[in-house]
Amino acid sequence: MAIDLAGKVALVTGASGGIGRAIAISLAASGAKVVLNYLNSKEAAEEAVAAIKHKGGMAIAIQADVSKAEEAQRLAAESEQAFGRKVDVLINNAGHLVQRVPNEDMTEEVYARIMDVNLKSAVFVTKAVIPGMKAAGAGCIVNLTSVAAHNGGGPGASIYAASKAAVLAYTKGLAKEVAASGIRVNAISPGFIGNTAFHATFTSAAAREATIQSIPLRREGTPEDVAGVALFLVSDLSAYLTGETIEVNGGMFMR
């Protein structure tokens, strides 16, 4: 069964690279008009837009700091204006470890940055698109969490892990809130995904190899592995799924 998203508008936060970029490209290839949100990486976001257009898709890039409520609202408004209709699909992908900090060294500033980019961003971008989805009687929201939400993460990542666990709970609560309006809300929990800035920044080569050897499928995941699941979750193939979290980790964590 082919997935057809023709006519739908999809907004992907944190879409200039890695998982967000792969999801945006996958949605566009299935016919969606895609808004790629970025914070600082304008050139990378525009390159992704160009790649989508080269293959006949429709996409634009919009800069916004989605950790700020007013910026999240602006992003949603500009997304709707760009394509002349409400947002049908929202992928809350923006997120960041920020930095590894043992709890005894945690500051309020770092704590706030971690929580804001991982949880607050999802809450307030979602808040901005829900009215349009309710008016249409349909919509799909996918939140990106992490295997860290289950295992507490690596060294100095306890607050990051907590923020991603909060995303899991938020997904379930929101799914109950909006189900009667025809809106489905699910989450994806990636494990060790290569070709991302996250591991390039925070994971050593030795740690990477050790992790791969511990994964039953004996390889790291790719952004495209995650994108395929996102595409499934926003399609009619998952029409009876809401409040669910799908683990994409090669078997390193099984529920």
Rank of each mutant, 00 (worst) to 15 (best):
M1V: 10
T13S: 08
I19T: 01
G20L: 00
G20H: 01
A22P: 03
A24G: 02
S26Q: 00
A28F: 00
A29L: 05
A29Y: 05
K33H: 06
V35T: 02
V35R: 00
Y38E: 03
N40I: 02
E43S: 14
A45Q: 03
E46S: 05
V49K: 01
K53S: 09
K53V: 15
H54T: 11
G56L: 06
G57V: 01
M58S: 15
I60N: 02
A61Y: 00
A61C: 00
I62C: 03
I62P: 04
A64M: 04
K68D: 12
K68R: 14
E70Q: 13
R74Y: 11
A77I: 09
A77F: 07
S79P: 02
E80K: 13
Q81M: 10
Q81L: 13
G84D: 12
V87E: 07
D88Q: 05
V89F: 08
A94T: 07
L97C: 10
L97I: 14
R100E: 14
P102H: 08
N103Y: 15
E108V: 15
Y111V: 10
Y111L: 15
M115S: 14
M115W: 14
D116L: 12
D116A: 15
D116P: 11
V117R: 04
V117A: 09
N118M: 12
K120R: 14
A122L: 14
V125A: 00
T126Q: 06
T126F: 06
T126D: 07
I130E: 05
P131V: 12
P131N: 13
G132Q: 10
G132C: 12
G132M: 13
A138D: 11
I141H: 09
N143I: 10
L144V: 15
H150N: 04
H150A: 05
N151T: 07
N151H: 06
N151W: 06
G152E: 00
G154C: 05
P155T: 04
G156I: 00
Y160W: 01
A161D: 05
S163T: 15
K164T: 03
A165M: 08
T171S: 02
G173F: 07
K176I: 09
V178A: 02
V178S: 04
S181Y: 12
S181G: 08
I183K: 01
R184C: 05
V185N: 06
N186Y: 11
F192T: 01
N195S: 14
H199F: 05
H199K: 04
T201M: 12
A205K: 13
A207G: 08
R208A: 14
R208L: 07
E209Q: 13
T211C: 05
I212V: 15
Q213K: 15
Q213I: 13
S214N: 14
I215Q: 07
R218N: 14
E220D: 11
E220Y: 12
G221K: 05
P223S: 04
E224Q: 06
D225E: 13
D225S: 11
G228M: 15
A230W: 11
S235T: 07
L237G: 09
L237F: 08
S238F: 09
Y240R: 09
Y240H: 10
T242K: 04
G243K: 02
E244P: 06
T245L: 10
M252Y: 07
M254G: 09
R255K: 09
R255M: 08
R255C: 06
